[in-house]
């Protein structure tokens, strides 16, 4: 979920921007000029995924896919998500300019963390069941941590935001499960059809 302009306190906005700048710098350093088309696609896919709605009971949620992005890209997820979110702000007015740092951090940091936690289980020689389970947790936890980070961004802005922050975290629960299932199935599919897409984690 994107936090829009004008809600957060200056301290949070600055903190988010500084950390995102650091993350993007690391990502760019690892990013080779030749990889840009690939990363461009993934960040475009990340953008389009947010337009895909899947049903959950009577309601529907849109996909986030930050876990999948982290799984394929590692640190390079930072620039990819930054660009995706900048475009969402410009094209649809989701999020905004001053909140770009915080929003990128909230989505990209969990992706990078999950990448490092589950890297072993996603290796080339991992068993299918281990691979599927690891991918599930990447998708699941990436959204979980994102929800927590969004909640904390609101909470640190002011204690009055606490109930709203709790609701935001709760709203992430159904999304987590679906993201987990989807990331797992999608990663298995990619491993079968295009294993070289996942080679980032094999190194």
């Amino acid at each position: 979920m994107h936090i829009s302009e004008g809600v957060l306190s200056p301290a949070i906005l600055i903190g988010g921007t500084v950390l995102t700048t650091a993350g993007v710098a690391i990502g760019l350093k690892k990013l080779d000029q030749d990889e840009i088309p690939l990363i461009g696609i993934l960040s475009a896919a990340f953008f389009v995924a947010s337009l895909i709605h899947v049903p959950v009971g009577p309601a529907s949620v849109h996909l986030v896919l930050n876990g999948l992005l982290g799984l394929i890209l590692g640190w390079k997820a930072f620039p990819a998500i930054l660009v995706g979110l900048a475009l969402q702000a410009l094209l649809f007015q989701y999020g905004g300019i001053t909140t770009l740092g915080v929003n990128t951090l909230n989505m990209a940091l969990p992706a990078v963390i999950c990448y490092y936690i589950f890297r072993q289980g996603l290796g080339k020689n991992a068993k299918r069941s281990v691979f599927a389970l690891s991918a599930f947790f990447v998708g699941f936890l990436a959204v979980f941590f994102s929800g927590i980070l969004v909640g904390f961004s609101l909470y640190f802005t002011g204690e009055a935001f606490l109930p709203a922050a709790k609701i935001v975290v709760l709203a992430h629960v159904p999304v987590m499960l679906i993201e987990g299932i989807l990331t797992s199935a999608c990663a298995l599919f990619l491993r079968k059809v295009r294993p070289e897409l996942l080679e980032g984690i094999y190194v």
Binding site: V24, I39, G40, A44, P79, A80, L82, V83, L87
Partner: peptide, 11 residues
């Protein structure tokens, strides 16, 4: 790199 990424993503 960011600008290139931006162009590719947009496309």
């Amino acid at each position: 790199k960011i600008v290139h990424l931006f162009f590719f993503t947009l496309r």
